[in-house]
Design a binder for these strands. Structure first.
Lengths: 123, 123
DNA sequence: TCTTCATTTCAATAGTTGTTGAAGCGTTGT
DNA sequence: ACAACGCTTCAACAACTATTGAAATGAAGA
């Protein structure tokens, strides 16, 4: 992933409204949600929500599909996972022993960082 | 994690300089890096770097320690992992079958999302 | 003590972001 | 055709963010 792509995504998650909207859509899964329902759930004006959804869509974090007179939004979960991979890749330059303590500090680290490769002694 | 905390972190990763600095520190691991070396590595002015490191520190993503006349910065990896957990929690409202296709779309999804609990038929 | 060095702080400036309410656009139902 | 609906776009404005270079701070060595 390019730096530019990642910063655009982070920027899109840097507002409370946008983060809440995205999390709502992640919770909703493939079903997604139409704009009006998101606005009701977050208690935000349609115009303001539209502004924020546009930023999320521009970053690629949500997709839109027209459905009659509604606009249905869905979270782009694969992109979210790519972002996480980008953020965690090359942690401690791939020297797992340096990472061990840091990994242990989180509740379920092995679910998040790439697995520590077993050292089989080969070059 | 509170929304406010998360948006502050995302905001701190929404600039190219800050994201590059943080990734550099993640790669560096517990050893960290002094400000001057970060500035050289990124080819940025000390004053501008200081501004950006301050934002990362304010978000809690990096820590600083004085070392003689140097300032040593280190990535806060546990916080990074907490953020990831916050972002991925409750994906598809915990109904894994809805998530299956989305997980499959990423290169190594089981390393990133919480494991899918086996359905043993119990209530 | 005086100088040098590493880094941060400050002030000025230019550019960007978010909110509001009104207007616009396409879709649906009468 | 018309009105109602759902949503987006627009313009104006206030608030915030980043960059620059100069000045300040504080530690180390002569």
């Amino acid at each position: 992933m390019e730096t530019r792509t990642a910063t655009t995504i982070f920027e899109s998650l840097s507002s409370g409204w946008r983060l809440e909207a995205f999390r709502l859509l992640v919770r909703q899964g493939p079903e997604g949600m139409v704009a009006g329902d998101i606005a009701s759930a977050l208690d935000i004006s349609p115009s303001s929500l539209s502004f924020h959804l546009k930023a999320l869509a521009h970053a690629g974090l949500v997709s839109v599909e027209q459905e009659g007179r509604f606009q249905r939004y869905r979270a782009n979960i694969p992109l979210m996972l790519d972002l996480i991979a980008y953020l965690t890749e090359e942690c401690c330059s791939g020297q797992p022993e340096k990472c061990a303590d840091l990994r242990a500090a989180s509740c379920c680290p092995e679910a998040v960082l790439p697995p520590i490769p077993a050292d089989d002694g080969k070059p």
